[in-house]
């Protein structure tokens, strides 16, 4: 059986919103070579989002399209993980200005890619053949993203006192948001029951192993599992998503009948 549309949207929204965040570095990266590398990650994620939205739109029929789904849904209709919508810097209220921090970007991508490398690998065996095909191409990308961010995490942890402190601060800031990974949304339960998708909690131990090893190699400390349990997958987001979407959607919504 096929995965429910909400499940596809959860995956697509997460990929798109993270691409949007990562793309903020394009032209502003710490060094030219890395600027290109991060742009590649954004492009991979936009590609994943497009395949998923196109598939979801085909299932919805009518006037649904990848761009209708991306540009004409509000924050409370988005189903992305809260982790990916947070700004590229430490904790601030919505709209507060703050210089971007590469450690936040790298740690976020690392925590997320560690999840996606596992999830896409499992989804290759989904009974939803189209989703399985998307997973088969995405898993390679996720593994590369994990390697990219893992390499940086090691360099930050082992590098200078400043880079170590920044990486640890980013880890402390972002860690609580990973708890959302393991709490199933209704869409995930449905995908698990009917489309051969893994139960989120079943990925937890493997994720722990992978993440713990990288954190230890980087001589960083794993933060305790505590803090607020966010619910982006349920459509309850941080203050930041609405700003991100307002910017992303502004041209498309100003010209609702336009084709680009």
């Amino acid at each position: 059986m096929n995965a429910p549309t909400d499940y596809l949207l959860q995956l697509a929204d997460t990929a798109l919103v993270l691409a949007q965040r990562n793309a903020e570095w394009c032209g502003h990266g710490p060094v030219l070579e890395e600027d290109l590398a991060m742009a590649n990650i954004s492009l991979d994620l936009i590609g994943q989002a497009r395949y998923l939205y196109q598939y979801a739109a085909a299932g919805l029929g009518g006037d649904a399209s990848e761009d209708r789904l991306a540009y004409f849904r509000d924050a409370n209709e988005y189903r992305c993980l809260t982790l990916v919508e947070l700004p590229n810097h430490g904790p601030r209220s919505g709209g507060a200005a703050c210089a971007p921090d590469y450690a936040t970007t790298i740690v976020r991508n690392f925590l997320h890619a560690a999840l996606m490398a596992l999830l896409w690998a499992e989804l290759q065996h989904s009974s939803d053949t189209q989703l399985a095909a998307i997973a088969a191409r995405s898993v390679k990308e996720a593994r590369y993203h994990l390697r990219h961010c893992g390499d940086w995490l090691l360099r930050f942890g082992d590098g200078t006192a400043e880079s170590h402190a920044r990486a640890q601060a980013a880890l402390d800031h972002l860690w609580p948001y990973t708890q959302e990974f393991w709490t199933p949304s209704p869409a995930e339960l449905a995908a698990c029951a009917h489309a051969g998708a893994p139960h989120p909690a079943s990925l937890h131990a493997a994720w722990d192993n992978r993440v713990d090893a990288a954190i230890a190699a980087a001589t960083l400390q794993r933060p305790p599992n505590c803090g607020f349990l966010c619910r982006g997958k349920f459509g309850q987001h941080s203050e930041h998503l609405s700003y991100l979407l307002a910017e992303m959607q502004v041209v498309a919504r100003a010209h609702p009948d336009a084709v680009w």
């Binding site: 793309a23 502003h28 290109l36 041209v251 498309a252 680009w260």
Partner: peptide
């Protein structure tokens, strides 16, 4: 790069990122 975040379709967003990225590569 000023318009990457506001590109009005996902296809155009991807094209624009790839193009701005190329310019970085050319500088390199």
């Amino acid at each position: 790069g000023n318009w990457i975040s506001r590109a009005p379709s996902l296809k155009r967003k991807a094209i624009l990122i790839a193009k701005v990225q190329d310019e970085g590569g050319h500088g390199l």
